[in-house]
Nucleic acid binder design. Structure first.
Lengths: 114, 114
DNA sequence: CTAATATATTCGTATATAAGTATATAGTTA
DNA sequence: TAACTATATACTTATATACGAATATATTAG
């Protein structure tokens, strides 16, 4: 059985982050796709600062990585983070959120397709 | 790959519960052992009402089961709960908390040994 | 170089959460 | 049956959290 070594305190911190539905969904999306702030703003119909704050929390723990492409900064899960294996096996059990990106594409607001 | 079907909203709720270090530790202990309130009070050096409130939150979601034995009510993880498989694979990755029960036994305050 | 766009940060607000004191309740024990 | 013990509940308080308006910052685009 593949086990990651993770302290209780760190585990609780990660789980608390994932215990917010918006962030959990973001993480599920970012596990497979790059996504930028303005796309999340559309997906969740939330304000840009709110989305930015959610990402900040993930960034503070090194859970996500950024890549600037032109005007946009794309976020994805940082698979090199020490907690990633722990996070991944949680995300694996969640339903796909790809439909949310699909919807963006249909509306012509998917940016990472360009 | 064994996957459980769990909705995002429910997953977030469960994860939020587990995002508290005290509750996470309690859940880890209860996954293998029965434990009563007064034992948790000793383990965590917290007030009885606090422990009781933590258990209440777990109980409200059906995550724990109770069993009265004399004066005491023993709690353990409810392995029949629909979310248990999801929870279990998270708990599996955490370090054992058995040493906490061990310490109780050494102090002579372990109740479920009697 | 300026204007525009994307994003981060600051700030304020409403709500949620964890902790403990006080009290009520549910049993068991004597 | 009354006394006692274990536990649940109610209440208060301090702190954390999520959200969005306003603003600052970092780039790119023209």
């Amino acid at each position: 059985m593949l086990k990651t070594s993770i302290e209780m305190e760190n585990a609780a911190s990660v789980l608390k982050l994932m215990g917010d539905k918006t962030r959990l969904t973001m993480m599920k999306i970012m596990d497979k796709h790059d996504c930028c702030v303005c796309e999340f703003v559309e997906i969740f119909n939330m304000s840009q600062p709110s989305i930015s704050q959610h990402l900040r929390k993930l960034r503070d723990l090194g859970l996500v990585k950024e890549e600037r492409r032109g005007q946009w900064i794309f976020y994805s899960m940082n698979k090199k983070n020490m907690y990633y294996p722990f996070i991944q096996q949680i995300l694996e059990h969640l339903p796909s959120q790809d439909d949310k990106l699909q919807k963006l594409e249909e509306q012509g607001t998917r940016i990472s397709c360009c």
